[in-house]
């Protein structure tokens, strides 16, 4: 049951500046409510500082279909809840130097994992069968990804280099983490910035 502990302070390799001098940054939306991304946008004018130093190479706020190669830093919002998340998470790990669990759902499962005590079939029946429309299973139609029996935090599927807690993390936390990563430093928070919830 014990898993290898991923300690960001020891494992996180500094992001080496790429050829154009800019960090290749990606943000990903998995099983979350997009609140973490909303909080990211709340960085407001700091976004200008950020994009002076980084290129956004993949994100729900940019229209790109494929997760690119050679990403320096990837922020992942949301827990691993379905088969598509599993596939994407593995691609992210292969193609990113630093992977960051961004927000409580990615870090702990949080609200997304509230369904873990229910059988997936019961869940789908409650939401879809007893409601309007037919029950999507994902395996046959390739449209709806099948739900995993249990929602898990990102680090229980792939190695994660740093964690940004919070539901959603406030902009101070995001900026503390992002500016450290841009500078090639490990992410370190004061205790009050480490609170879940």
């Amino acid at each position: 049951m014990a898993r290898k502990q991923t300690n960001p302070r020891e494992d996180a390799a500094p992001a080496a500046p790429p050829s154009n001098g800019k960090i290749r940054l990606a943000t990903v939306w998995m099983g979350g409510c997009s609140g973490c991304h909303m909080s990211f946008l709340d960085l407001d004018e700091k976004l200008l500082d950020l994009f002076a130093q980084a290129d956004l190479v993949y994100s729900p706020i940019a229209d790109l279909k494929e997760f690119p190669e050679n990403v320096d830093v990837t922020l992942v919002e949301g827990a691993i809840a379905n088969v598509d998340h599993v596939k994407l998470a593995k691609e992210i790990r292969e193609r990113s130097k630093i992977v960051v669990s961004f927000g409580d759902c990615a870090v702990t499962g949080n609200v997304t994992s509230l369904r873990n005590r229910l059988q997936v079939d019961d869940l789908l029946t409650k939401v879809y069968h007893e409601g309007p429309g037919s029950v999507p299973h994902g395996d046959d139609d390739d449209i709806m990804p099948a739900l995993l029996p249990r929602v898990i935090p990102l680090h229980q599927l792939i190695k994660v280099d740093a964690f940004i807690p919070g539901c959603p993390p406030d902009t101070d936390r995001i900026w503390t983490a992002v500016s450290a990563l841009l500078a090639g430093q490990p992410v370190e928070f004061e205790p009050e910035m480490r609170l879940f919830g």
Binding site: M1, A2, R3, K4, Q5, T6, P8, S101, V107, T108, G109, S113, N116, R117, R150, P153, H155, Q156, V160, F163, P165, F189, P191, E192, R194, L195, F196, G197
Partner: peptide, 18 residues
């Protein structure tokens, strides 16, 4: 929650028993 933050817990390495 406070003790977890103070003692540097940034994630849970064990499977959640649910």
């Amino acid at each position: 929650q406070t003790q977890a933050a103070k003692n540097g817990m940034d994630s849970v390495r064990y499977d959640y028993l649910v």
